[in-house]
Design a protein around this nucleic acid. Structure first.
Lengths: 334, 334
DNA sequence: GCGTTTTGTCGACGCGCGTCGATCATGAGG
DNA sequence: CCTCATGATCGACGCGCGTCGACAAAACGC
């Protein structure tokens, strides 16, 4: 493998000139730069990542701390990782996945202490998240993809789940639905921000609109959807529409209804919060309110990279709206 | 951040002694080692990853080259990544995801030239895969998770798809099924090894058993399953069982059948190749023949790490069986 | 008792690069 | 003609660690 010295020798310049020709941090005559670049091409030279990381301030590696649950990843979660990786690569960074749990402070400390990464993107942020303290103490740069209970002064990017919940409920109410079932995940107690904010807002809005809101929750599985339908069928409530914030359960819910002879959306409307493109593949295609995953991760990665490279942060607290995509799984009763 | 010199000073030894106390590559008296370890603990010292990578032979980073398709990842694919990450972490390595396509030689070359990684695990291996040549030329250590058309002399770990296909077909034939539909993916032309090997073996076995085998293929989507059922319904063939090698399509296929009033497995049996644990969540739970993902990635990672650390390879060509898990989606006609 | 290995430790060097200070040539300004 | 700023380049150093050779002390063989 060619090194900087090889390039310098071939180009007939000093080693530091090669560095400056690459980085552009000092002025180099056009002619010299050309000679250097030509030598680099000829030798097929690429700077050694470890030497750069050791000598310079920028290491070129980011970490995505994404706690994995037993259920594995849903398509949406995969997209977070996918788009984050892509955004990082576009900016010349590598992306490491750290699947450690939020409270696995020991492992995270060990990882961080190696000084391998320039910063961390923190996923699945809890209401009271120990990672915030940990990274602050250690002087590790980080951006939250989500929010804890008090995110003031922190860099974060999050979906505005209160607004999403309002959007979803209003959409149903506008179409004449007055008896609604909410199917969520059983993670409220664990301080899952999106679920907490969604439920709070749904209940507030339901009260305001004067509509009835039943609730059901379970793990993120197909089976939870079926269980939710059984719950609905046996509850005796005159539910005409369901909001499902549990992507795996959505399909199970719809299938269970259909197998019971209930038509969707003829007899029962379904609106999903959080399902991705796969919602278009279901029969019927599902109307969704979905976080703008690519925009979220893109913003988070750029914020982190901006901090690493010393650009002044243009914005450090970002809330994004989740757009509603109509696909026909909600019937208009009016 | 404390450095090796700080530890040495506190322990009253030289810097190199600290290194040897950590690595154990030279004998150190028990007493000295204890002093060093105590100093490390006191200063909360962790060796700097970049310095290690620069000075030593081992870099502590592996790459997983996993070409991502537009459909994103299925649960199975996620598990490959997940288990590989875990295996790497257990062995003290970090794992980078390189989602570059197999024929994106330029990008892969650029990544490899940075010398950031000790080796690469190659996923989605094609019949004629340019990466094999690329990595060989560049002297990059790699292990194939899969096989190209001529894997002799290469390190690889793969599922024995011929055996899996045989297992699946025999299972159905043993239970009296004589008219079978195979639903696959439309990736045969692109040289997708598992699909090619499976189809070849299925056709050979079908001929041997004297059973009829219809075929349908499509992208890895829920919709493909529905299309497959329409195909079956309009074909007029007396099909009693389907083998589906397309995890997303499996659910769509079953649902379409059920909505048409066809009971699974009462009227139609379904056996999936390649679905993971999520098969248990479907209604009815689906009988599967599934690659041992964790064992595969574990073996691949260990092979790679073994090579990196200079252990003699115990085995460099591994074929693993995909076990059949009965879950009740196949009816016994005998 | 004296050579000879073994054990434990130290100092020095190199990995490949980013960057600081110094140098030298050039041209502008007086 | 002499300053003084500017542009272009070079040499040296340091980042933090792994490892080699050297060396003193201890253990061994006879």
């Amino acid at each position: 493998m060619a090194t900087r010295d090889d390039v310098a020798r071939l180009a007939g310049v000093s080693a530091s000139t090669v560095s400056y020709a690459i980085s552009g941090r000092r002025s180099i005559s056009a002619e010299t730069r050309e000679r250097v670049l030509a030598a680099m091409r000829e030798l097929d030279y690429t700077p050694n990542a470890f030497a750069r990381g050791l000598a310079g301030a920028r290491k070129g590696i980011l970490a995505l701390n994404y706690p994995l649950r037993d259920e594995g990843w849903s398509p949406m979660e995969v997209r977070y990782f996918e788009t984050a990786t892509q955004a990082a690569h576009e900016l010349g960074f590598q992306l490491l996945l750290w699947p450690n749990a939020a409270d696995d402070v020991a492992s995270l400390t060990a990882l961080v202490s190696q000084q391998l990464v320039d910063g961390v993107i923190v996923m699945e942020v809890q209401w009271d998240d120990p990672r915030v303290e940990l990274f602050k103490e250690r002087g590790v740069r980080f951006v939250l993809l989500g929010r804890n209970s008090d995110p003031s002064g922190l860099d974060f990017v999050d979906t505005d789940f209160r607004a999403s919940a309002r959007t979803a409920l209003e959409y149903l109410v506008d179409r004449g639905h007055r008896d609604i079932l909410f199917v969520g995940e059983d993670r409220v107690e664990q301080g899952h921000g999106p679920m907490v904010r969604t439920i709070n807002e749904l209940e507030a809005s339901a009260r305001r609109f004067g509509v009835s809101l039943d609730r059901f929750a379970g793990p993120r599985t197909y089976g939870t959807g079926r269980a939710a339908y059984r719950h609905l069928a046996t509850s005796g409530r005159p539910v005409t529409a369901a909001i499902v914030f549990n992507d795996q359960a959505t399909v199970g819910f719809i299938n269970a209804a259909q197998l019971a002879g209930v038509s969707v959306p003829g007899d029962l409307s379904v609106l999903s919060i959080g399902m991705g493109e796969e919602a278009a593949e279901v029969d019927p295609p599902v109307t969704t309110v979905t976080p703008p995953v690519a925009a979220l991760t893109d913003t988070a990665v750029r914020m982190l990279v901006g901090a690493v490279e010393g650009h002044p942060a243009t914005q450090s607290e970002v809330l994004m709206d989740a757009p509603l995509v109509e696909r026909g799984s909600v019937r208009d009763l009016t």
